[in-house]
Write a protein that binds this DNA or RNA. Structure first.
Length: 443
RNA sequence: GUGAGUGUAGCUCAGUUGGUUAGAGCACCAGGUUGUGGCCCUGGGGGUCGGGGGUUCAAGUCCCCUCACUCACCCCA
Protein backbone atom coordinates (compact mmCIF):
# COMPACT_ATOMS: atom_id res chain seq x y z
CA UNK A 1 0.00 0.00 0.00
CA UNK A 2 1.19 3.47 -0.81
CA UNK A 3 2.31 5.75 1.97
CA UNK A 4 -0.62 7.45 3.61
CA UNK A 5 -0.95 11.16 3.01
CA UNK A 6 -2.33 12.99 5.98
CA UNK A 7 -5.78 14.22 5.03
CA UNK A 8 -5.77 17.92 5.67
CA UNK A 9 -7.48 20.96 4.26
CA UNK A 10 -6.22 24.39 3.34
CA UNK A 11 -6.73 26.89 6.12
CA UNK A 12 -9.90 28.90 5.82
CA UNK A 13 -11.61 26.43 3.46
CA UNK A 14 -14.23 23.84 4.33
CA UNK A 15 -15.83 20.63 3.16
CA UNK A 16 -19.58 20.78 3.25
CA UNK A 17 -20.84 17.36 4.29
CA UNK A 18 -24.37 16.37 3.25
CA UNK A 19 -25.96 17.48 6.49
CA UNK A 20 -24.48 20.95 6.03
CA UNK A 21 -25.21 21.02 2.31
CA UNK A 22 -28.87 20.39 2.98
CA UNK A 23 -28.95 23.49 5.16
CA UNK A 24 -27.00 25.55 2.65
CA UNK A 25 -29.28 24.51 -0.18
CA UNK A 26 -32.31 25.31 1.93
CA UNK A 27 -31.09 28.89 2.36
CA UNK A 28 -29.99 29.22 -1.28
CA UNK A 29 -33.30 27.88 -2.52
CA UNK A 30 -35.26 30.46 -0.55
CA UNK A 31 -32.99 33.28 -1.74
CA UNK A 32 -33.15 32.22 -5.40
CA UNK A 33 -36.91 32.04 -5.30
CA UNK A 34 -37.13 35.58 -3.95
CA UNK A 35 -34.52 36.93 -6.35
CA UNK A 36 -36.46 35.58 -9.29
CA UNK A 37 -39.72 36.80 -7.81
CA UNK A 38 -38.22 40.30 -7.91
CA UNK A 39 -37.27 39.93 -11.56
CA UNK A 40 -33.57 39.15 -11.17
CA UNK A 41 -31.80 36.83 -13.60
CA UNK A 42 -28.96 34.41 -12.85
CA UNK A 43 -25.32 34.96 -13.79
CA UNK A 44 -22.09 33.08 -13.17
CA UNK A 45 -18.54 34.17 -13.92
CA UNK A 46 -15.17 32.35 -13.82
CA UNK A 47 -13.30 31.67 -10.61
CA UNK A 48 -10.15 33.07 -12.17
CA UNK A 49 -9.94 36.55 -13.60
CA UNK A 50 -7.05 38.37 -15.17
CA UNK A 51 -5.16 40.30 -12.54
CA UNK A 52 -5.76 43.57 -14.36
CA UNK A 53 -9.50 42.99 -13.97
CA UNK A 54 -9.26 42.58 -10.22
CA UNK A 55 -6.52 44.98 -9.20
CA UNK A 56 -7.09 48.53 -8.15
CA UNK A 57 -10.85 48.31 -7.85
CA UNK A 58 -11.43 47.83 -4.16
CA UNK A 59 -8.71 49.73 -2.38
CA UNK A 60 -5.26 48.98 -1.08
CA UNK A 61 -6.26 46.58 1.68
CA UNK A 62 -8.46 44.45 -0.54
CA UNK A 63 -5.80 44.34 -3.23
CA UNK A 64 -3.45 42.82 -0.69
CA UNK A 65 -6.06 40.20 0.22
CA UNK A 66 -6.68 39.06 -3.35
CA UNK A 67 -5.21 35.67 -4.28
CA UNK A 68 -2.76 36.21 -7.09
CA UNK A 69 -0.91 33.77 -9.36
CA UNK A 70 1.13 33.56 -12.48
CA UNK A 71 -0.10 30.87 -14.87
CA UNK A 72 2.08 28.65 -17.09
CA UNK A 73 1.94 31.19 -19.85
CA UNK A 74 3.26 33.80 -17.40
CA UNK A 75 -0.08 35.58 -17.35
CA UNK A 76 -1.00 37.34 -14.12
CA UNK A 77 -4.30 36.09 -12.77
CA UNK A 78 -6.24 36.09 -9.52
CA UNK A 79 -9.20 34.50 -7.76
CA UNK A 80 -12.21 36.78 -7.63
CA UNK A 81 -12.42 38.83 -4.45
CA UNK A 82 -16.10 39.61 -4.82
CA UNK A 83 -18.91 39.35 -7.37
CA UNK A 84 -19.30 43.04 -8.13
CA UNK A 85 -16.12 43.55 -10.11
CA UNK A 86 -16.74 40.48 -12.31
CA UNK A 87 -20.24 41.80 -12.95
CA UNK A 88 -18.83 45.15 -13.99
CA UNK A 89 -16.46 43.41 -16.38
CA UNK A 90 -19.38 41.45 -17.86
CA UNK A 91 -21.45 44.60 -18.35
CA UNK A 92 -18.58 46.27 -20.17
CA UNK A 93 -17.93 43.20 -22.33
CA UNK A 94 -21.53 42.62 -23.35
CA UNK A 95 -23.03 46.06 -23.97
CA UNK A 96 -25.99 44.47 -25.71
CA UNK A 97 -27.45 43.23 -22.42
CA UNK A 98 -30.76 45.11 -22.06
CA UNK A 99 -30.80 47.65 -19.24
CA UNK A 100 -31.74 48.02 -16.55
CA UNK A 101 -30.22 44.61 -15.95
CA UNK A 102 -31.09 42.85 -12.71
CA UNK A 103 -28.86 39.91 -11.93
CA UNK A 104 -28.26 37.61 -9.03
CA UNK A 105 -25.11 35.57 -8.58
CA UNK A 106 -24.33 32.93 -5.99
CA UNK A 107 -20.72 31.80 -6.10
CA UNK A 108 -17.67 31.48 -3.88
CA UNK A 109 -15.11 34.25 -3.53
CA UNK A 110 -11.59 34.11 -2.08
CA UNK A 111 -9.77 36.37 0.33
CA UNK A 112 -6.25 35.77 1.58
CA UNK A 113 -6.70 36.92 5.14
CA UNK A 114 -6.42 35.12 8.44
CA UNK A 115 -9.53 33.08 9.19
CA UNK A 116 -11.46 33.59 12.40
CA UNK A 117 -15.02 33.31 13.64
CA UNK A 118 -17.48 33.80 10.77
CA UNK A 119 -14.63 34.52 8.39
CA UNK A 120 -13.11 32.26 5.78
CA UNK A 121 -10.70 32.32 2.87
CA UNK A 122 -13.22 30.67 0.58
CA UNK A 123 -16.83 31.59 1.12
CA UNK A 124 -20.04 32.09 -0.81
CA UNK A 125 -21.65 35.36 -1.58
CA UNK A 126 -25.14 35.99 -2.94
CA UNK A 127 -25.20 39.24 -4.87
CA UNK A 128 -28.16 41.11 -6.27
CA UNK A 129 -27.43 44.12 -8.46
CA UNK A 130 -29.26 46.45 -10.83
CA UNK A 131 -27.20 47.91 -13.65
CA UNK A 132 -28.31 50.81 -15.81
CA UNK A 133 -30.62 52.66 -13.48
CA UNK A 134 -29.48 55.93 -11.94
CA UNK A 135 -32.67 56.16 -9.91
CA UNK A 136 -32.77 55.51 -6.19
CA UNK A 137 -35.74 53.34 -7.07
CA UNK A 138 -33.13 50.73 -7.93
CA UNK A 139 -31.59 51.16 -4.49
CA UNK A 140 -35.04 50.81 -2.98
CA UNK A 141 -35.56 47.55 -4.87
CA UNK A 142 -32.31 46.21 -3.46
CA UNK A 143 -33.22 47.18 0.07
CA UNK A 144 -36.68 45.68 -0.35
CA UNK A 145 -35.24 42.40 -1.55
CA UNK A 146 -32.87 42.30 1.41
CA UNK A 147 -35.76 42.86 3.75
CA UNK A 148 -37.88 40.16 2.16
CA UNK A 149 -34.99 37.69 1.98
CA UNK A 150 -34.11 37.97 5.64
CA UNK A 151 -37.73 37.86 6.68
CA UNK A 152 -38.36 34.74 4.60
CA UNK A 153 -35.41 33.03 6.27
CA UNK A 154 -36.96 33.72 9.64
CA UNK A 155 -34.93 36.71 10.77
CA UNK A 156 -36.84 38.97 13.11
CA UNK A 157 -34.30 41.18 14.82
CA UNK A 158 -32.29 42.98 12.20
CA UNK A 159 -31.59 46.53 11.12
CA UNK A 160 -30.86 47.70 7.60
CA UNK A 161 -28.59 50.69 8.01
CA UNK A 162 -28.65 53.17 5.16
CA UNK A 163 -26.43 56.12 4.36
CA UNK A 164 -25.03 58.02 1.40
CA UNK A 165 -21.44 58.32 0.34
CA UNK A 166 -22.38 61.70 -1.13
CA UNK A 167 -23.37 62.93 2.31
CA UNK A 168 -20.10 61.69 3.74
CA UNK A 169 -18.13 63.30 0.94
CA UNK A 170 -20.10 66.50 1.46
CA UNK A 171 -19.34 66.55 5.16
CA UNK A 172 -15.65 66.08 4.49
CA UNK A 173 -15.69 68.78 1.84
CA UNK A 174 -17.48 71.33 4.00
CA UNK A 175 -15.34 70.57 7.04
CA UNK A 176 -12.20 71.72 5.28
CA UNK A 177 -10.43 68.45 5.98
CA UNK A 178 -8.73 68.76 2.64
CA UNK A 179 -9.02 67.27 -0.79
CA UNK A 180 -8.95 63.52 -1.27
CA UNK A 181 -9.38 62.79 2.41
CA UNK A 182 -12.91 61.46 2.01
CA UNK A 183 -12.02 57.80 2.15
CA UNK A 184 -9.85 58.25 5.21
CA UNK A 185 -12.58 60.17 6.97
CA UNK A 186 -15.14 57.57 5.96
CA UNK A 187 -13.00 54.76 7.30
CA UNK A 188 -12.58 56.52 10.63
CA UNK A 189 -16.24 57.29 11.21
CA UNK A 190 -17.20 53.80 10.10
CA UNK A 191 -15.73 52.54 13.37
CA UNK A 192 -18.22 54.55 15.39
CA UNK A 193 -20.13 51.64 16.90
CA UNK A 194 -16.88 49.87 17.73
CA UNK A 195 -14.72 52.59 19.24
CA UNK A 196 -17.26 55.30 20.09
CA UNK A 197 -17.24 58.98 19.27
CA UNK A 198 -14.05 59.63 21.23
CA UNK A 199 -12.34 56.83 19.39
CA UNK A 200 -13.38 58.29 16.05
CA UNK A 201 -12.08 61.68 17.15
CA UNK A 202 -8.76 60.16 18.07
CA UNK A 203 -8.61 58.24 14.81
CA UNK A 204 -9.18 61.43 12.85
CA UNK A 205 -6.50 63.22 14.86
CA UNK A 206 -4.02 60.46 14.12
CA UNK A 207 -4.77 60.94 10.44
CA UNK A 208 -3.87 64.59 10.89
CA UNK A 209 -7.23 65.99 10.01
CA UNK A 210 -7.28 69.63 11.21
CA UNK A 211 -8.99 70.00 14.63
CA UNK A 212 -11.49 72.49 13.29
CA UNK A 213 -12.49 70.02 10.59
CA UNK A 214 -12.88 67.20 13.10
CA UNK A 215 -15.07 69.47 15.17
CA UNK A 216 -17.30 70.12 12.18
CA UNK A 217 -17.46 66.52 11.07
CA UNK A 218 -18.48 65.23 14.47
CA UNK A 219 -20.91 68.10 14.92
CA UNK A 220 -22.60 67.25 11.67
CA UNK A 221 -22.89 63.58 12.54
CA UNK A 222 -23.85 63.58 16.18
CA UNK A 223 -27.51 64.43 16.17
CA UNK A 224 -30.29 62.41 17.74
CA UNK A 225 -33.80 61.97 16.45
CA UNK A 226 -35.70 60.20 13.73
CA UNK A 227 -34.49 59.83 10.17
CA UNK A 228 -36.14 63.04 8.97
CA UNK A 229 -34.79 65.12 11.85
CA UNK A 230 -31.27 63.95 11.18
CA UNK A 231 -31.57 64.53 7.46
CA UNK A 232 -32.69 68.11 8.09
CA UNK A 233 -29.84 68.65 10.49
CA UNK A 234 -27.29 67.36 8.06
CA UNK A 235 -28.81 69.34 5.19
CA UNK A 236 -28.07 72.53 7.10
CA UNK A 237 -24.41 71.54 7.29
CA UNK A 238 -24.20 70.79 3.61
CA UNK A 239 -25.48 74.05 2.10
CA UNK A 240 -22.06 74.73 0.59
CA UNK A 241 -21.59 71.30 -0.94
CA UNK A 242 -23.28 70.34 -4.18
CA UNK A 243 -22.38 66.70 -3.61
CA UNK A 244 -23.69 66.83 -0.08
CA UNK A 245 -26.97 68.39 -1.11
CA UNK A 246 -27.41 65.77 -3.80
CA UNK A 247 -26.82 63.11 -1.17
CA UNK A 248 -29.48 64.54 1.12
CA UNK A 249 -31.94 64.74 -1.77
CA UNK A 250 -31.37 61.13 -2.77
CA UNK A 251 -31.81 59.97 0.82
CA UNK A 252 -35.09 61.87 1.00
CA UNK A 253 -36.22 60.20 -2.17
CA UNK A 254 -35.01 56.79 -1.08
CA UNK A 255 -36.89 56.87 2.20
CA UNK A 256 -39.99 58.02 0.39
CA UNK A 257 -39.79 55.11 -2.03
CA UNK A 258 -39.09 52.69 0.79
CA UNK A 259 -42.25 53.80 2.54
CA UNK A 260 -44.25 52.52 -0.44
CA UNK A 261 -42.67 49.09 0.00
CA UNK A 262 -44.16 49.03 3.47
CA UNK A 263 -40.94 48.03 5.14
CA UNK A 264 -41.45 48.64 8.87
CA UNK A 265 -39.49 51.56 10.34
CA UNK A 266 -38.08 49.22 12.97
CA UNK A 267 -36.05 47.42 10.29
CA UNK A 268 -34.69 50.54 8.63
CA UNK A 269 -32.43 53.28 9.90
CA UNK A 270 -30.50 56.22 8.50
CA UNK A 271 -27.07 55.78 10.01
CA UNK A 272 -24.79 58.68 9.22
CA UNK A 273 -21.83 56.77 10.61
CA UNK A 274 -22.20 53.95 8.11
CA UNK A 275 -19.45 54.19 5.54
CA UNK A 276 -18.43 50.74 4.10
CA UNK A 277 -14.87 49.79 3.36
CA UNK A 278 -14.67 49.50 -0.41
CA UNK A 279 -13.56 52.46 -2.46
CA UNK A 280 -15.96 52.13 -5.35
CA UNK A 281 -19.20 53.23 -3.68
CA UNK A 282 -20.54 56.55 -4.89
CA UNK A 283 -24.10 57.00 -3.60
CA UNK A 284 -26.49 55.24 -1.26
CA UNK A 285 -24.84 52.52 0.83
CA UNK A 286 -26.43 49.95 3.08
CA UNK A 287 -25.72 47.03 5.32
CA UNK A 288 -27.63 44.79 7.69
CA UNK A 289 -26.65 43.98 11.23
CA UNK A 290 -28.08 41.63 13.81
CA UNK A 291 -27.72 42.16 17.55
CA UNK A 292 -27.22 38.49 18.35
CA UNK A 293 -24.91 36.82 17.77
CA UNK A 294 -22.11 39.35 17.37
CA UNK A 295 -20.91 38.62 13.89
CA UNK A 296 -20.68 41.94 12.08
CA UNK A 297 -22.80 42.64 9.05
CA UNK A 298 -24.80 39.98 7.22
CA UNK A 299 -25.45 42.04 4.10
CA UNK A 300 -23.57 44.94 2.58
CA UNK A 301 -23.70 46.99 -0.57
CA UNK A 302 -24.35 50.26 -2.26
CA UNK A 303 -24.25 52.26 -5.44
CA UNK A 304 -21.12 52.23 -7.60
CA UNK A 305 -21.72 54.47 -10.59
CA UNK A 306 -18.07 54.71 -11.67
CA UNK A 307 -16.86 51.14 -11.52
CA UNK A 308 -18.11 49.87 -14.87
CA UNK A 309 -16.57 52.88 -16.58
CA UNK A 310 -13.16 51.55 -15.58
CA UNK A 311 -13.77 48.70 -18.04
CA UNK A 312 -15.86 50.30 -20.77
CA UNK A 313 -14.64 53.88 -20.66
CA UNK A 314 -18.22 54.90 -20.21
CA UNK A 315 -19.83 55.06 -16.79
CA UNK A 316 -22.88 52.98 -16.18
CA UNK A 317 -24.98 53.49 -13.04
CA UNK A 318 -25.21 50.42 -10.85
CA UNK A 319 -26.26 49.45 -7.37
CA UNK A 320 -26.53 46.25 -5.43
CA UNK A 321 -25.85 44.25 -2.33
CA UNK A 322 -24.18 41.14 -1.11
CA UNK A 323 -26.26 38.86 1.06
CA UNK A 324 -23.69 37.11 3.21
CA UNK A 325 -24.64 33.46 2.93
CA UNK A 326 -22.00 32.21 5.37
CA UNK A 327 -22.86 34.61 8.12
CA UNK A 328 -26.57 34.07 7.60
CA UNK A 329 -26.02 30.34 8.03
CA UNK A 330 -23.87 30.91 11.11
CA UNK A 331 -26.55 33.07 12.68
CA UNK A 332 -29.33 30.65 11.75
CA UNK A 333 -27.39 27.81 13.32
CA UNK A 334 -26.68 29.68 16.52
CA UNK A 335 -30.28 30.82 16.85
CA UNK A 336 -31.68 27.42 15.86
CA UNK A 337 -33.58 28.81 12.91
CA UNK A 338 -33.40 25.72 10.69
CA UNK A 339 -36.37 23.32 10.50
CA UNK A 340 -35.86 20.23 12.67
CA UNK A 341 -36.09 17.56 9.98
CA UNK A 342 -33.58 19.19 7.63
CA UNK A 343 -30.99 16.41 7.60
CA UNK A 344 -31.15 14.58 4.28
CA UNK A 345 -33.02 14.84 1.01
CA UNK A 346 -33.69 11.08 1.16
CA UNK A 347 -37.30 10.35 2.07
CA UNK A 348 -37.43 6.57 1.83
CA UNK A 349 -35.00 3.70 2.24
CA UNK A 350 -36.01 0.49 0.50
CA UNK A 351 -34.32 -2.39 2.29
CA UNK A 352 -33.07 -5.56 0.67
CA UNK A 353 -34.00 -8.68 2.62
CA UNK A 354 -31.84 -11.16 0.74
CA UNK A 355 -30.73 -12.22 -2.71
CA UNK A 356 -34.06 -13.88 -3.50
CA UNK A 357 -36.16 -10.76 -2.90
CA UNK A 358 -33.72 -8.29 -4.46
CA UNK A 359 -35.71 -8.06 -7.72
CA UNK A 360 -38.79 -7.22 -5.69
CA UNK A 361 -36.93 -4.47 -3.79
CA UNK A 362 -35.68 -2.99 -7.05
CA UNK A 363 -39.22 -2.97 -8.39
CA UNK A 364 -40.50 -1.21 -5.25
CA UNK A 365 -37.72 1.39 -5.44
CA UNK A 366 -38.45 1.95 -9.11
CA UNK A 367 -42.13 2.53 -8.43
CA UNK A 368 -41.51 4.89 -5.51
CA UNK A 369 -39.02 6.84 -7.60
CA UNK A 370 -41.49 7.02 -10.46
CA UNK A 371 -43.98 8.43 -7.97
CA UNK A 372 -41.52 11.23 -7.24
CA UNK A 373 -40.28 10.10 -3.84
CA UNK A 374 -36.59 10.49 -3.04
CA UNK A 375 -35.81 6.82 -2.63
CA UNK A 376 -32.59 5.13 -1.58
CA UNK A 377 -32.24 1.44 -2.43
CA UNK A 378 -29.89 -0.29 -0.03
CA UNK A 379 -26.75 -1.41 -1.85
CA UNK A 380 -24.67 -2.64 1.07
CA UNK A 381 -24.09 -6.03 2.63
CA UNK A 382 -25.75 -5.64 6.01
CA UNK A 383 -28.78 -7.47 7.32
CA UNK A 384 -32.00 -5.64 8.06
CA UNK A 385 -30.66 -4.49 11.41
CA UNK A 386 -27.78 -2.65 9.78
CA UNK A 387 -30.08 -1.20 7.15
CA UNK A 388 -32.31 0.28 9.81
CA UNK A 389 -29.23 1.62 11.54
CA UNK A 390 -28.26 3.41 8.34
CA UNK A 391 -31.69 4.98 7.98
CA UNK A 392 -31.51 6.09 11.58
CA UNK A 393 -28.04 7.59 11.26
CA UNK A 394 -28.94 9.50 8.12
CA UNK A 395 -32.29 10.65 9.43
CA UNK A 396 -34.27 8.98 6.65
CA UNK A 397 -37.88 9.16 7.85
CA UNK A 398 -39.39 6.15 6.08
CA UNK A 399 -38.08 2.60 5.73
CA UNK A 400 -39.74 0.07 3.43
CA UNK A 401 -39.36 -3.67 3.96
CA UNK A 402 -39.94 -5.89 0.94
CA UNK A 403 -39.20 -9.36 2.24
CA UNK A 404 -40.59 -12.80 1.31
CA UNK A 405 -43.82 -12.29 3.26
CA UNK A 406 -44.50 -8.95 1.63
CA UNK A 407 -43.61 -10.23 -1.80
CA UNK A 408 -46.02 -13.14 -1.42
CA UNK A 409 -48.81 -10.71 -0.54
CA UNK A 410 -47.90 -8.17 -3.26
CA UNK A 411 -47.39 -5.75 -0.37
CA UNK A 412 -44.72 -3.77 1.44
CA UNK A 413 -44.15 -2.97 5.07
CA UNK A 414 -43.82 0.77 5.65
CA UNK A 415 -42.17 1.96 8.83
CA UNK A 416 -42.16 5.56 10.01
CA UNK A 417 -38.84 5.89 11.82
CA UNK A 418 -39.93 8.98 13.70
CA UNK A 419 -42.89 7.36 15.43
CA UNK A 420 -41.81 3.73 15.19
CA UNK A 421 -45.18 2.77 13.72
CA UNK A 422 -45.33 0.38 10.82
CA UNK A 423 -48.03 -1.00 8.57
CA UNK A 424 -48.31 -3.44 5.71
CA UNK A 425 -49.94 -1.97 2.61
CA UNK A 426 -50.52 -3.15 -0.97
CA UNK A 427 -47.77 -2.12 -3.38
CA UNK A 428 -50.28 -0.06 -5.32
CA UNK A 429 -50.92 2.11 -2.25
CA UNK A 430 -47.33 2.39 -1.01
CA UNK A 431 -46.36 5.72 -2.56
CA UNK A 432 -49.55 7.39 -1.44
CA UNK A 433 -49.27 6.06 2.12
CA UNK A 434 -45.66 7.27 2.34
CA UNK A 435 -46.57 10.65 0.94
CA UNK A 436 -49.21 11.06 3.60
CA UNK A 437 -46.84 10.04 6.38
CA UNK A 438 -44.28 12.57 5.16
CA UNK A 439 -46.70 15.46 4.92
CA UNK A 440 -48.46 14.62 8.17
CA UNK A 441 -45.25 14.97 10.10
CA UNK A 442 -43.96 18.16 8.52
CA UNK A 443 -47.17 19.95 7.61
C1' G B 1 1.79 42.11 9.53
C1' U B 2 0.87 42.65 15.38
C1' G B 3 -0.76 40.49 20.15
C1' A B 4 -2.72 36.46 23.28
C1' G B 5 -4.01 31.42 24.07
C1' U B 6 -4.24 26.05 23.17
C1' G B 7 -1.88 21.29 21.48
C1' U B 8 -3.19 13.93 25.22
C1' A B 9 -7.85 8.35 21.02
C1' G B 10 -11.97 10.12 15.13
C1' C B 11 -14.49 14.28 18.63
C1' U B 12 -14.80 16.80 23.69
C1' C B 13 -11.58 16.55 27.56
C1' A B 14 -9.24 14.43 32.60
C1' G B 15 -4.33 13.15 33.98
C1' U B 16 -2.21 15.11 41.59
C1' U B 17 4.34 18.20 44.39
C1' G B 18 7.67 14.69 37.85
C1' G B 19 6.88 8.06 39.70
C1' U B 20 5.61 1.91 37.38
C1' U B 21 1.12 -0.71 32.10
C1' A B 22 -1.89 7.12 29.90
C1' G B 23 -7.86 7.35 31.29
C1' A B 24 -13.31 8.89 30.70
C1' G B 25 -17.58 10.29 27.82
C1' C B 26 -19.19 10.40 22.86
C1' A B 27 -18.28 8.09 18.10
C1' C B 28 -16.81 3.36 15.69
C1' C B 29 -16.94 -2.32 15.39
C1' A B 30 -19.00 -7.03 17.31
C1' G B 31 -22.52 -9.57 20.30
C1' G B 32 -27.17 -9.69 23.35
C1' U B 33 -31.52 -9.80 18.66
C1' U B 34 -30.92 -15.19 11.54
C1' G B 35 -37.34 -9.81 9.80
C1' U B 36 -36.50 -3.83 12.67
C1' G B 37 -33.10 1.77 14.20
C1' G B 38 -33.11 5.07 18.57
C1' C B 39 -32.79 3.35 24.71
C1' C B 40 -30.17 -0.43 27.61
C1' C B 41 -26.28 -4.33 28.70
C1' U B 42 -21.51 -6.95 27.46
C1' G B 43 -17.05 -7.04 24.88
C1' G B 44 -13.49 -4.96 21.27
C1' G B 45 -10.32 -1.96 18.16
C1' G B 46 -7.94 2.41 18.38
C1' G B 47 -2.43 6.95 21.25
C1' U B 48 5.10 8.17 17.99
C1' C B 49 0.75 12.53 24.71
C1' G B 50 2.00 18.00 17.79
C1' G B 51 7.62 17.56 16.48
C1' G B 52 12.86 18.12 18.05
C1' G B 53 16.33 18.92 21.84
C1' G B 54 17.52 19.49 27.15
C1' U B 55 17.21 18.66 32.78
C1' U B 56 16.45 14.03 35.71
C1' C B 57 17.36 7.54 38.37
C1' A B 58 12.51 8.72 36.07
C1' A B 59 9.01 13.65 31.66
C1' G B 60 2.14 13.71 29.18
C1' U B 61 3.88 16.76 33.55
C1' C B 62 9.77 21.07 34.15
C1' C B 63 13.06 24.20 30.46
C1' C B 64 14.37 25.76 25.30
C1' C B 65 13.34 25.68 20.12
C1' U B 66 9.93 24.60 16.33
C1' C B 67 5.34 23.50 13.95
C1' A B 68 0.09 23.51 13.89
C1' C B 69 -4.46 25.37 15.35
C1' U B 70 -7.73 29.03 17.77
C1' C B 71 -9.07 33.92 19.29
C1' A B 72 -8.35 39.18 18.88
C1' C B 73 -6.33 43.66 16.11
C1' C B 74 -6.38 45.51 10.86
C1' C B 75 -10.04 44.73 7.21
C1' C B 76 -14.43 42.49 5.87
C1' A B 77 -19.52 38.75 4.37
Amino acid sequence: MAKKIQPRIYKGTRDFLPEQMVKRQYVIQILKTIFEKYGFEPLETPTIELWETLSGKYGEEADRLTYRFVDRGKREVGLRYDLTVPLSRVIAMYPQIPKPFKRYQIQPVWRADKPQKGRFREFYQCDVDIVGSPSVLADAEIIAIIYESLTALGFQQFKIRVNSRKILFGITEVSGAGMDRELEVCRAIDKMDKIGIEGVKQELQEREIPPAAIQKILGALSIEGDNQTRLNHIAAYLQESETGKAGVAEMQQLFEYLSYYQIPDSALTLDLFLSRGLDYYTGPIYETVVEEPKIGSITGGGRYDNLIGLFSGQDQPATGSTIGLERIITVMEELNMFPEDLRTPVQVLVTVFDESTLPYSIRIARELRAAGLNTDLYTGKSKLRGQFGLANDKGIPIVVIAGPEEQAAEAVNVKDMRSGNQQTVPVSDAAEVIRQLLSAKTG
